[in-house]
Amino acid sequence: MTNLAVDLPGLRLKNPVMPASGCFGFGREYSDFYDLNKLGAVIMKAATGEARLGNATPRVAETASGMLNAIGLQNPGVEQIIASEVSFLEGYHVPVVANVAGSTIQEYVTVAEAFNKTPSVSALELNISCPNVKEGGIQFGSDPDMAAKVTEHVKAVSHLPVYVKLSPNTSDIVAMAKAVEQAGADGLSMINTLTGMQIHLASQKPTLANKTGGLSGQAIKPVAIRMIYAVKPHISIPIIGMGGIAEAEDVLEFMLAGASAVAVGTANFTNPYTCPEMINRLPGVLQQYGYESVQDAIGRGHNE
């Protein structure tokens, strides 16, 4: 019997697969396709202090083996999310991770405090890497000092474990990881999207109304693997890996690079059943490569 369970700070996962923030809403829509209890956990769409309406459309564009998005953190605000969305997810036996975003450190703190008062939230994911909003987000994610500062402030008000979601849009990912670990992060999420652009030939203008967007999907998987592999030896906190995961084999690849669990984003759009299908296939893939548990595979790609 292959053991898929993983224990992370605040998260006792029955399997290591969870939908990534922003690609799954608050789970309602995908609950029409399958039982959310199959998932390791659910990472909710980013919450800000007040409701946000996001960017103009078009907000998505397909690329070779991936897609660009510039939603712009549209969400109904943290209080509304707690009232109507977290309460929906309480109906499932699945840990809930709340993704926290903001334009200022104070906004991150306000949102984090609200989720800390919500018993059914198990952990926070700090979104310091959204490339699609004018203020906040990525400005916290590209400078190690700023990233450490926002992490410290949120940690100071949070009894819930804090996972910091790192941006690949930085010249030194190891420095970023070390800075947030030192600031008290309980874990890392790696990676957010890569900033990109597509020009629509028919109009000869950028396809996205926001012009730039975040590149996700299978195209970015090697970037994610490289960054997790680079960071792993320098930190002692666990990594939730993400970036182009579409198959059970990808899950194992992320584990070998150093991830302790994974999040699946864009692949949910291609196939709404991606997560449960991946979870069903994972034991067979682990066995095929000689692993009896997920735990055994973590970081094994580093062995000489």
């Binding site: 922003g22 690609c23 799954f24 809403g25 309602r28 829509e29 995908y30 029409d32 396709f33 769409k45 409701a51 309406l53 996001g54 459309t57 078009p58 907000r59 998505v60 564009a61 897609m67 998005n69 939603i71 549209q74 109904p76 949910n268 759009f269 709404p272």
Partner: peptide, 22 residues
């Protein structure tokens, strides 16, 4: 509109209106 998930989760294909959510 260009769509992402096609099922209401990703908020890619929005249209503004006068409702409370906007």
């Amino acid at each position: 509109e260009r769509m992402g998930c096609g099922t209401g989760a990703c908020l890619a294909c929005m249209i503004r209106d006068d409702s409370a959510s906007g």
